[in-house]
């Protein structure tokens, strides 16, 4: 089945690019959620206690926090007396602040973590106002927007990659359409002969569809090599990214890339071949 060679290379190349970009989107989505989860789970909410709070108030608060549904299961709320806070601050500043002979300006605090679902501005605000009115509490602090900002940025980059992938998918679609059309045109006598002696459309399309499967797999493999190569390289420069932390998800991603390449190419070849076979025999010539 003769067909213009360079066109087929363009098809494979553009399809690989689409799959590579989609692979990046997938990788980015996994990685962003993995990293933000890491960051989020370590976000402390700080409850400052009043100077004259009682031990009972404090312990009741600790118990309440432990039982609250906005408390991260598996972690424990921590009480940090102001003396310890001052000492830790001193260690950070490499000076003994006690020696200054000042009054300790800090307050006793309790810190705790919340599950990821509560890490949104409005949920956090609700938690804060609930705690605010409890006896012995002076104030509640957390880094607002921190989470939202990370998530928004991650999403934005994801969309940009997805947009690029869509653009290249369009290019790939046009190239596939054009290549198949040229190939059908180059084989028009063969096809006409097949139709007139009584070949089914299935028989006529079969070589094109097989080629589509081969090309799709090849493009998938190229894209996969690109994604893997990038991952290996990034991992070697930025080991803290933990790029291979979730092998099962990665496996699905790799499999998805291969399958998608095969599917995209098969379906678009199928559509184009059928379209041209449906045109009246004469119109092709």
């Amino acid at each position: 089945m003769p067909s213009p060679r360079p066109n087929q290379l363009y098809v494979i190349f553009s399809l690989s690019l689409v799959l590579f970009l989609l692979g990046l989107v997938g990788l980015w989505t996994f990685q962003a959620s993995y990293l933000t989860r890491q960051l989020q789970e370590n976000l402390d909410i700080i409850v400052e206690l009043e100077v004259d709070h009682t031990k009972e108030q404090r312990e009741l608060l600790l118990l309440e926090l432990l039982a609250a549904d906005y408390h991260q299961p598996g972690s424990t709320p921590e009480y940090l007396p102001k003396e310890q806070a001052l000492q830790e601050m001193g260690e950070d500043l490499e000076r003994d602040l006690d020696d200054l002979g000042l009054n300790n300006p800090l307050l006793d605090v309790i810190t705790f973590n919340v599950p990821i679902v509560y890490l949104q501005s409005d949920s956090l605000a609700a938690i804060a106002s609930e705690l605010q009115v409890k006896p012995g509490v002076a104030g509640v602090f957390y880094q607002d927007n921190f989470v939202d900002r990370i998530a928004a940025n991650a999403r934005r980059l994801g969309w940009v990659l997805l947009g690029l992938a869509a653009l290249f998918a369009l290019v790939a679609g046009l190239l596939i359409h054009n290549t198949v059309r040229l190939s059908l045109y180059a084989n028009r006598f063969t096809i006409k002969t097949q139709e007139l002696v009584g070949a089914s459309w299935g028989f006529i399309s079969r070589p094109y569809l097989w080629r589509a499967v081969g090309q799709g797999l090849l493009a998938g493999l190229i894209a996969l090599t690109g994604v893997l190569g990038l991952q290996v390289w990034l991992q070697s420069v930025l080991p803290e990214l933990d790029l291979f932390a979730e092998p099962v998800r990665l496996g699905f991603l790799y499999g998805g890339i291969l399958l998608l390449g095969l599917l995209i190419n098969f379906v678009s070849h199928y559509v184009v071949v059928r379209r041209y076979l449906r045109l009246r025999l004469d119109d092709l010539y």
Binding site: V197, G198, S200, W201
Partner: peptide
């Protein structure tokens, strides 16, 4: 459309 190949096999064109 699906039957046309069957018809053509009965014809010598």
């Amino acid at each position: 459309r699906k039957k046309i190949p069957q018809l053509r096999r009965k014809l010598g064109i």
